[in-house]
């Protein structure tokens, strides 16, 4: 595959140059919004004017970042998005862990311990991936009320777990389907139990799909706005809600640099995860969904 273009003719070189040109152009397209965000977030307000989106700051400053983190006001609170950043972490970490563990066990049970109707169960659960979230807002609110979890972080964790396990189950099921069943059968014959087999046989090979599940869930939950705004109170709002509040808070002059810095702060965790682990994400995802 890789050595298709090999001959060093003039035409090939020209083609090579074209190739790089197209790839770089595409890279510019993808980088444009991030570049604008980043550049704007380190500009003093005075340097921001129409048509100068991409001009580099003459006097770069980190003041907008500091303000966005700890001082920018929403309503009467002038505490920036920093506090809410930690709210998000407090919601994301347990939600990701729980949904991944449940997904792994589900995927394992569905593939290695098939029973009558297990495919139907999978089909039923899969539908949860596709349900538009606006639909469940009100009934979910009522349910959270019944459970005594309304407006709490625990409630938000529950919501994210509930609507996350459809995805995590899908990932793990598609991955485990490719793990040779003979091993499991052999272990069963040897008398190994359900959890033992999972622990000793499935889990050790699950690293790629765990990465997928964790990244996917982390991104989804971190970026969630709808559930975050609907099921939180003043002190449990996640960072996306705080960002939205900040950006929509209107005071005479709009501080675009602070808005952009806040947006960067809210985006940073998922961005870092993708940059560091994106490779494993795609590799793991295709291992499941392509061969499924």
């Amino acid at each position: 595959m890789d050595n298709v273009i090999r001959r060093r003719t003039l035409g090939a070189r020209l083609g090579r140059a074209m190739l790089y040109a197209v790839l770089l152009l595409a890279a510019l397209f993808y980088l444009l919004p991030l570049a604008v965000m980043l550049i704007t977030s380190v500009k003093p307000l005075a340097e921001i004017s129409p048509g100068t989106l991409l001009s580099l700051p003459r006097e770069p400053t980190l003041a907008p970042w500091a303000k966005a983190w700890g001082e920018a006001c929403t309503g009467m609170r002038c505490e920036g998005v920093g506090v809410y950043f930690f709210n998000s972490i407090a919601i994301v970490v347990p939600a990701v862990l729980i949904s991944t563990i449940i997904g792994a066990l589900n995927g394992y049970a569905l593939t290695k311990w098939r029973f009558k109707g297990s495919e139907l169960v999978f089909a039923l659960m899969l539908f949860g991936c596709f349900i538009p979230f606006q639909v469940v807002l009100l009934p979910m609110a009522q349910t959270l009320g019944w459970l005594g979890l309304s407006s709490s972080r625990a409630g938000l964790v529950l919501v994210h777990v509930v609507f996350g396990i459809a995805f995590t189950t899908l990932f793990f099921r598609n991955f485990y389907v490719a793990v040779p069943t003979e091993l499991v059968s052999a272990a069963k014959l040897d008398g190994a139990g359900f959890f033992r087999i999972f622990w000793r046989i499935l889990l050790p090979v699950s690293a790629p799909i765990i990465v997928v599940s964790v990244i996917w869930q982390f991104t989804q939950i971190w970026n969630d706005f709808l559930f975050g705004v609907a099921f939180s109170a003043h002190n449990t709002q996640p960072v996306t809600v705080a960002l939205n509040n900040l950006v929509n808070t209107s005071t005479g002059v709009r501080e675009y640099n602070v808005d952009m810095a806040a947006a960067m702060i809210a985006a940073l965790p998922t961005l870092i995860v993708y940059v560091l682990a994106g490779k494993y994400f795609v590799r793991g995802l295709t291992a499941g969904s392509v061969k499924g």
Binding site: D2, Y30, L31, L243, A263, A266, A267, Y274, K279
Partner: peptide, 28 residues
């Protein structure tokens, strides 16, 4: 897939938007 130099970097650049929500990028 044509043996590109810096493939990893380019791939990350193409992929990163998936990490961001429109709540973040909408303003831009």
């Amino acid at each position: 897939d044509q043996r590109i130099r810096q493939e990893g970097a380019l791939r990350t650049i193409y992929l990163y938007p998936m990490a961001l929500s429109f709540i973040v990028t909408g303003v831009v």
